[in-house]
Write a protein that binds this DNA or RNA. Structure first.
Length: 486
RNA sequence: GGUCCCAUCGUCAAGCGGUCAAGACGUUGCCCUUUCACGGCAGAGUCGGGAGUUCGAUUCUCCCUGGGAUCACCA
């Protein structure tokens, strides 16, 4: 059981303040991959120490996102383990205990300064004013007196002047900062809750986290965490900081701009597995040219060597392409099931058979939300330019169209059945009857049926979907249009 | 502003002293084909700038430039 210490344990520690941001999701994914690639454990810890920012249902959204992406945690609030509780607000007393320990050792101290008085430095025009440690100078008697009087207080970290301190990040290498850059951060807030900094250190240690995987925005504050580990006599975990995902070269993907919500992408018709695959590739590569990878494949080749240091821009176009790959890989039944809601929600006519529509669209969409516009191409039929009938490459003209349409109307009226195969065979039989070529007939009929230059599906597929009555109606309309302009 | 970090096609990226500088998305053209799409093939397109180190820099060092992050009783 001692080698339990050598087991890799990573965690995803979101705060329940809203929806699942794809940047956070990628962090979770990497932490999960890394744990699983090392045969370790992946833990979810909810960081809800800021009671003002709590959002109802946010925890559920986090689970939903992870479930959608097939990330299965080993320990979490909903799947207890040996290191619980996994919700920080339920661990409140633990933090205080360690803060008190730090006070005893002189690594922390009570501070009674008002929130607004924090910038009590003598030169406020200085851009970076740090707390001036004034409460550190309080005598024991003074402290006790204030405590007794129930004066609100916080507990601050006492950062000593240590000169340059550094640590090694597994991605970024050695990072050094001067201790004078570090402020006496607050460990315990006046409401008794720990700050992120402190809760993180305590929990990561107590939960046996071996590798801290998080966004690079924490890179510069990591040294002060390490000071805490040292003061507490704890081993510092390994750090893996991740570059940001950007919206463009200047801005991070943000909640504010609504360009980062996983659920929005799912609603738009992206498959969670495709999204996960895509964002995994933003900042990591398997070391070869594979781009479409299953989670199993990713885990098998996941290593920190494949992580990059520079931030990357989120390219929805490429995600779309990848999603198209995933869609085409679906069985026709799976595709039908997934596309049905979009077909039924279409603003266009519902009189078409959704099975036929789905079959037609399977290779023609990259995200499900494109379904509506594709149906429009079949459903909407209005007057059009007869120039469409002239197709040099196929030797199709208005004249050949006239012959084709006339023959097709007759054919459609006489067909004993009206399914795609029968229609298709019937149309081909027109080759003999009219002496025209296959392309001439099929092009003309499709145009006559749709009034468009391009449509999903060809002549027989379109006729099948439209049905005999509507097909003949459209053909007659086109015939009239054609004779009119002749 | 201080501090920290980053820098290869438009975008994601490989590269880890000597390469015609991979591959992918997108884009262009061609093929397949009754349109579109799928699929296949081909093309265009990149090392931010300047000093070094070296026989030789995309690669190592420094400076500049550009960009990002961080300086909260938010995480």
């Amino acid at each position: 059981m001692d080698d339990k210490l050598s087991v890799v344990r990573t965690r995803f520690a979101p705060s329940p303040t809203g929806f699942m941001h794809v940047g956070n999701l990628r962090t979770a994914l990497y932490a999960y991959y890394f744990a699983k690639a090392s045969n370790g454990k992946f833990i979810i810890r909810i960081e809800d120490t800021d009671r003002d920012r709590l959002v109802d249902g946010a925890v559920e959204k986090i689970y939903y996102a992870l479930d959608q992406c097939n990330v299965i945690e080993d320990e979490s609030p909903r799947k207890a383990g040996n290191y619980g509780p996994y919700v920080q607000s339920e661990r409140k007393s633990i933090y205080l205990e360690y803060a008190l320990k730090l006070i005893k050792s002189g690594d922390a101290y009570y501070c009674f300064c008002d929130k607004k008085n924090r910038d009590i430095t003598d030169n406020p025009e200085n851009d970076s004013y740090k707390y001036d440690k004034r409460c550190l100078k309080l005598s024991k008697a003074q402290i006790n007196e204030k405590l007794k009087a129930k004066t609100p207080y916080v507990i601050r970290q006492n950062v000593q002047d240590l000169g340059t301190i550094s640590f090694t990040d597994l991605v970024y290498g050695e990072i050094s900062v001067d201790s004078s850059e570090i402020e006496d951060n607050i460990l315990i807030k006046s409401d008794g809750m720990p700050t992120y900094n402190f809760a993180n250190v305590v929990d990561d240690h107590l939960m046996g986290i071996t590798h801290v995987i998080r966004g690079a925005e924490y890179l510069s504050s990591t040294p002060k965490y390490n000071l805490l580990y040292n003061s507490l006599g704890w081993e510092v975990p390994k750090y893996i900081h991740l570059p940001a995902i950007m919206r463009d070269e200047r801005h991070k993907l943000s909640k504010r701009h609504g360009d980062a919500n996983l659920e929005d992408f799912i609603l738009k018709g992206y498959l969670p597995s495709a999204i996960a695959n895509y964002i995994t590739l933003l900042g990591w590569n398997p070391g070869d040219t594979r781009e479409k990878l299953t989670m199993q494949e990713i885990i098998e080749s996941f290593s920190i060597q494949g992580l990059s240091k520079s931030s990357s821009i989120f390219d929805e176009q490429k995600m779309k392409w990848l999603n198209g790959l995933y869609i085409r890989e679906l069985s026709s039944d799976e595709f039908y099931q997934k596309s049905l809601p979009y077909i039924l929600n279409s603003s266009h006519s519902k009189k078409y058979d959704p099975i036929k529509i789905a079959k037609l669209l399977h290779s023609r969409i990259e995200i499900f939300s494109e379904i509506d516009e594709k149906i429009a191409l079949i459903d909407e039929f209005e007057t059009y330019s007869t120039e469409l009938y002239d197709r040099i490459k196929l030797k199709a003209t208005k004249a050949t169209a006239l012959i084709s349409i006339n023959a097709t109307i007759e054919l459609f009226k006489s067909l004993s059945q009206f399914d795609e195969i029968t229609i298709h065979d019937g149309l081909l039989s027109l080759i003999d009857k009219t002496g025209l070529k296959k392309g001439q007939i099929l092009w003309s009929v499709r145009v006559a049926l749709t009034g468009r230059e391009s449509t999903p599906g060809g002549a027989s597929e379109t006729a099948d979907i439209l049905g005999r009555k509507e097909s003949i109606k459209r053909l007659e309309f086109s015939l009239a249009l054609l004779t009119q302009t002749q």
